[in-house]
């Protein structure tokens, strides 16, 4: 029996080598990766300040100032996509006109993504936090989502920043104001940027 020991060990070794060969002889090349891109991240967000006034419910627009933000959160020229070295300053005039802010989210292929947010309007809300209070007023025009809403100027001669934050997972059965300072405690963030604004009196032009 003792003489059989090495033979059995050798047999087991042979089986192990066979198993090891079986185990490791499979392909050494990984499966080709599938191309995925982040559907959830917009590639570009455009914020349009449309100056105008209402006739009934119809907005008569005069002109539009657009701020564009690209995927890395930096400001770009909305027409050429060239990088801007700082946030553009939007000048808002006090008067009978309002400034309708329309926000547009674009995918990397240029498709508009707004529908994805609006179909879940019950859990999405934009908040706008001016750095100086009492200068601006805002009214949601789209069931408190904030993709469309009107700013009006209350005080002139002010330079201020405006934090725009889109939150999801919000419990909207609770009424929350557009400038709720606790905005970053509700749900979680989809988008955030800080705009630079300047308020002037009606007819006063920006010479910067």
């Amino acid at each position: 029996m003792k003489k059989r020991t090495p033979k059995r060990i050798l047999s087991a070794l042979a089986v192990f080598m066979l198993l090891s060969a079986l185990v490791t002889s499979c392909s050494k090349d990984p499966v080709a990766p599938n191309e995925e891109h982040n559907h959830d991240d917009p590639a570009k967000v455009a914020l349009l300040f449309i100056k105008g006034h209402y006739h009934g419910t119809q907005l008569h627009a005069h002109d539009t100032a657009t701020v564009a933000v690209r995927m890395d959160g930096r400001f770009i020229d909305p027409n050429t996509n060239a990088l801007l070295d700082k946030a553009p300053v939007i000048t808002l005039e006090q008067g009978s006109d309002i400034y309708q802010l329309q926000v547009k989210f674009y995918a990397s292929d240029g498709d508009l993504l707004n529908g994805e947010f609006l179909e879940e309007a019950a859990i999405h809300q934009f908040f706008f936090l001016p750095s100086v209070s009492g200068v601006l007023n805002y009214v949601y025009k789209d069931d408190r989502v904030g993709f469309t809403g009107d700013f009006s100027v209350l005080q002139t001669g002010k330079e201020l920043s405006l934090t725009a934050s889109l939150r999801h997972g919000i419990n909207k059965t609770v009424q929350r104001e557009w400038n709720d300072v606790k905005y970053n405690t509700y749900g979680s963030e989809d988008f955030k940027t800080v705009l630079q604004l300047k308020t002037v009196a009606a007819g006063e032009h920006d010479h910067d």
Binding site: S27, K28, P30, N34, E36, H39
Partner: peptide, 14 residues
């Protein structure tokens, strides 16, 4: 596995 719509955190590997 494909179809996540998210760039994978780690690569495929052997």
């Amino acid at each position: 596995q494909p179809g996540t719509g998210v760039v994978p955190l780690i690569p495929n590997y052997k």
